[in-house]
Design a binder for these strands. Structure first.
Length: 480
RNA sequence: UCCUCAGUAGCUCAGUUGGUUAGAGCACCUGACUGUUAAUCAGGGGGUCGUAGGUUCAAGUCCUACCUGGGGAGCCA
């Protein structure tokens, strides 16, 4: 079937061309002699206006056309007589592929709540908002590969099924082909995993980092981009059980280089969205502005979406040590006047999200990279500082979203890493292959994990992570 | 998992102190209109008030439990 994409039609200033367009009806307006149909084919957020002179024959066809119906329209591009658009299509003939029974089709030409659209996730692609979000999501995927490829990074596919149950990033989903109603048992009465598909207990990965490090200690610069799975029972607008993560890992990079990479990459991606998804970003910007008007004045954004993106683009991220952050928080007015639910009184405790938000939104008013955390509250593989009590960790904190990136310089000393493994009782049998990177030709190296959906939250201005992934997986929800 | 708020027409919501036959806008159907922009105007159909119990002469409204959803917290990306 030969068709012209609506994005092409709208971008062309040539009138009088005979073309065929196909798409879905957004609205239909009929009067006695003329009928207007707003048609969308997903190639752009904008609709093409179809103009039909009503004849008895067309009238019959149009009877079956409602919001949601799919059409093919043959016609001629003409300069619009109306004020809403430059080009429109004067139709010669239409073919209805499929009607959408208005008694059953849930989408209307009006704003629906995001909660309602989440319940019809199979159809929400057809709304302006979700069309914009998923076009941007695509562009970000492409931009990420582009960023790393053009800088000499290799994309590594790390396994989704993992044999180690201690990747250290959270609860895991078990993968098994055993009959759960009739589990084979060992003599001691435990489950006999030797009879399972892989001959051992396996899980879905929570991170590709450990495998990524293996590749980085040979190819120097690698990145992964794939799904990860966390079986945490977390019900928040920032967490998913299945989400996508980007994990670069670079040999010969220290924490400073790691921070530079993270900041540069985020700015590249935000700029890419502004430069390549202008219509969609503008739509979402307006959408958010309207949403903000419903809120009380003190809860509204100071900047709109585009201003926020540009602000991040044009300002250096604040780089702050954990110890400095604790000092700032301890001496803050908020702390002294009891505004914090968790008052900051000492060194060594993990920061609560209210503290992170204070640092980002109140104190620095820009993205913050927090580094050098106490070793007790961070993962075993992070490089120990000379003080012996902090590690070379970094968290990139964004306004509203919180932690968008978590990373570190890795511990390259076999002895030091081994002693952490022992301290934390991590089973050697699951880790031996990882530890060998430090045994043979070990190098300083660093990396981080970027939560893809959290990036999408930022560049779309959406506030719930379930709205930036087509089919969200969360506790008790896997309908679509 | 904890705290908190909410659930009324297909959608978005109103419903007073517990009191007659539960309302509006949008959507849909019918009609009007020579170019509309989420068209407009007139009329029409559409409800087990989340579910189950309870209090009461009387429950959409009060109480209890459960379910579903939002927001916050923890865990983190």
């Amino acid at each position: 079937m030969k068709r012209t994409k609506i994005s092409e039609v709208l971008n062309s200033t040539e009138f009088g061309k005979e073309i065929t367009v196909m798409g879905w009806v957004r609205t239909k307006r009929v009067s006695k002699n003329v009928c207007f149909i707003a048609l969308n084919d997903g190639s752009t957020i904008n609709n093409l206006q179809i103009v039909l002179d009503v004849t008895p024959e067309l009238d019959q066809k149009l009877a079956g056309v409602h919001t949601g119906a799919s059409l093919s329209v043959d016609g001629k591009t003409v300069e619009s007589m109306g004020s809403g658009q430059k080009v429109e299509l004067q139709a010669k003939d239409i073919t209805v592929f499929g009607d959408a029974n208005p008694d059953e089709y849930p989408l209307q030409p009006k704003r629906h709540s995001l909660e309602f659209l989440r319940e019809i996730a199979h159809l929400r692609f057809r709304t302006n908002t979700f069309g914009a979000i998923f076009r941007i999501r695509h562009a970000m995927t492409f931009a990420i590969h582009n960023y790393f490829n053009s800088r000499g990074f290799y994309n590594i596919h790390t396994p989704l099924i993992t044999g180690s149950d201690c990747e250290g990033a959270g609860e895991m989903f078990q993968v098994t082909t055993l009959d759960l109603n009739n589990l084979p048992k060992t003599e001691e009465g435990k489950i006999d995993y030797t009879q399972d598909f892989f001959g051992k207990s396996t899980n879905l990965t929570v991170s590709g980092q450990l495998e990524g490090e293996l590749a980085a200690t040979a190819l120097s610069q690698i990145y992964t981009f794939g799904p990860t799975f966390r079986a945490e029972n977390s019900n928040t607008p920032r967490h998913l059980a299945e989400f996508w993560m980007i994990e670069p890992e670079v040999a010969f990079n220290d924490l400073e280089d790691n921070m530079d990479l993270a900041e540069d990459m985020l700015k590249y991606l935000i700029k890419y969205a502004l430069d390549n998804c202008r219509d969609d970003v503008e739509f979402l910007c307006k959408r958010r502005e309207e949403e903000q008007k419903q809120k009380p004045a003190n809860e509204r954004d100071e900047m709109n979406l585009i201003e926020k993106m540009e602000f991040v683009l044009h300002n250096d991220f604040a780089r702050v040590t954990y110890t400095e952050a604790i000092d700032i928080l301890k001496n803050s007015k908020a702390n002294k006047t009891g505004k914090f639910v968790y008052p900051v009184d000492g060194w060594g405790v993990d920061l609560q999200s209210e503290h992170e938000r204070y640092l980002v939104e109140k104190h620095y008013k820009r993205p913050v990279i927090l580094i050098d955390y106490p070793k007790e509250i961070k993962a075993f593989y992070m490089k120990l500082n000379e003080d012996g009590k902090t590690v070379r960790a970094m968290d990139v904190l964004f306004p509203q979203i919180g932690e968008i990136i978590g990373g570190s310089q890795r511990e390259e000393s076999y002895e030091k890493l081994m002693s952490r493994v022992e301290e934390l009782h991590i089973p050697y049998k699951d880790m031996w292959w990882y530890l060998e990177t430090r045994k043979f030709g070990t190098v300083p190296h660093s990396g981080f994990g970027l939560g893809f959906e959290r990036l999408i939250l930022f560049v779309t201005g959406m506030s719930n992570i379930r709205d930036v992934i087509p089919f969200p997986r969360t506790p008790k929800t896997a309908e679509f």
